[in-house]
Design a protein around this nucleic acid. Structure first.
Lengths: 240, 240
DNA sequence: AGAATAGTGTCTCTAAGACAGTATGAT
DNA sequence: ATCATACTGTCTTAGAGACACTATTCT
């Protein structure tokens, strides 16, 4: 390498962006996994991994644009909740050399993402999150990345409206509460939940009801699909 | 470049680690700045910037080791509080090309860091943080990085024991409260503060008192210098 | 009527906030 | 005694949690 200035004298690590894309399926938290390619030179062939890959320096203006692009490629979803979890970098995490990955987590509503395993056939799947992990052995340090993403998600659910981003466009308070319970993996008290949520600027009534074999329920929609609401107190976190 | 495997076909961004090193000086929050070199090819010559630089792929095992190394080089401090804030990456933030920087913030006790502006003479200084910024114009996007670091610091002070890491080895409750007030830039109520702090496992009495021109105060030390304590509720954040 | 889920009334509990009061040293 | 700061007593307030109660639809 030609040393034109000091910047050239430093070797550059491999730089990737990975995604933990969460969604609720069958009343359980799921994360999207993709299968590692089997081509020669590829590490961890055929293992499952979080979707992600190298930054395209020509197409990606910044890290978040890169994450958005990869999310859209995998799920078709364009405006989900997307948050940077952190960056892992080190000499050992990729056999090809010193590498960094910046991890984002995304929340997508189940009904907005019917499209996945179809385009790339069987090389992508939703895996159920059990505790902090998934049944499959994951490539690289992705088990650790996933654990941190799940922990970030769970801890933020305690004091924000994040689960609202997992909802379809209209939903009832009971359905939203169920989404909280699934992401937290514990039951919540109905009255406290409703008071808490309705005390904020999060929801707006729509003049429709959800009918079933019981009393109809008021339907709500999000006032804004932009940023989550922060509550003044976290849930206590010990009850069941 | 020779394409030996797919990994070689991707250009790699410049990758750096930067630090927002905070300390309390003269009853105010300060951050350590270094002056950009004036050598040709160096962007933003002579402007102040957050300390940082390229990863040394041979010496730095991982990102945090790199941050620790740079912190030690600048301040001599070896075991401070160090937390990753996030990673900024994009095509425009460094004129030399697509670059990423991973920002860490560190909290160092004022008395543990007498050594700085001396080694490198006038190329480093403590700058007072006013609101979310500093008087000097900063290089790159460091004003934005600093703002995020300050916001992270302030918001975590609301519900953690972070300011404890800014204290000398022994201190009184009033001194700790003052540290909270300085980092938050607002006054706190004494009784509530003491109850909150003493209800945790954070502090341990030492059998000594701080004497002055008044009633002596009980001295305390941290039970652990490792991780911060998380309180169950945040401060309300509106009073003054 | 009964099942099922929506939604409320009300009490308790915890920890923050307000603020006045007492305690203990130096001068 | 006075001042300054340390420390406590106690009332108020906000919001979580518990839990029983009422409401409304369907079958």
């Amino acid at each position: 390498m030609l040393a034109m200035s000091t910047v050239e004298t430093f070797e550059r690590p491999l730089t990737t962006v990975d995604l933990a894309i969460f969604s609720i399926q069958d009343e359980a938290l799921h994360v999207l996994l993709v299968k590692r390619p089997a081509a020669k030179g590829e590490p961890y062939p055929n293992l499952w991994a979080l979707p992600g890959g190298f930054i395209d320096l020509d197409r990606d203006d910044d890290l978040e644009a890169c994450a958005s692009r990869k999310l859209k490629e995998k799920t078709g979803v364009v405006t989900p909740y997307l948050e940077q979890v952190g960056t892992w970098g080190g000499a050992k995490r990729d056999p090809r050399g010193w590498s960094t990955t910046t991890l984002y987590f995304a929340l997508v509503a189940a009904d907005s993402v019917a499209l996945i395993p179809g385009g790339n056939a069987g090389d992508a799947k939703w895996a159920r999150v059990d505790g902090h992990r998934v049944r499959d052995k994951l490539a690289f340090d992705h088990a650790e990345l996933l654990q941190e993403a799940v922990e970030r998600l769970r801890s933020k659910v305690e004091y924000t409206s994040l689960p609202a981003f997992l909802m379809p466009s209209e939903f009832t308070l009971s359905e939203l509460q169920r989404m909280y319970e699934i992401t937290l993996d514990r039951l919540l008290e109905k009255k406290a939940f409703r008071t808490r949520v309705l005390a904020t600027e999060l929801l707006e009534e729509v003049p429709r009801m959800r009918s079933g074999a019981n009393r109809p329920a008021q339907l709500y929609k999000l006032k804004s699909r932009k940023k989550p609401i922060f509550f003044t107190r976290a849930l206590s976190g010990e009850r069941g």
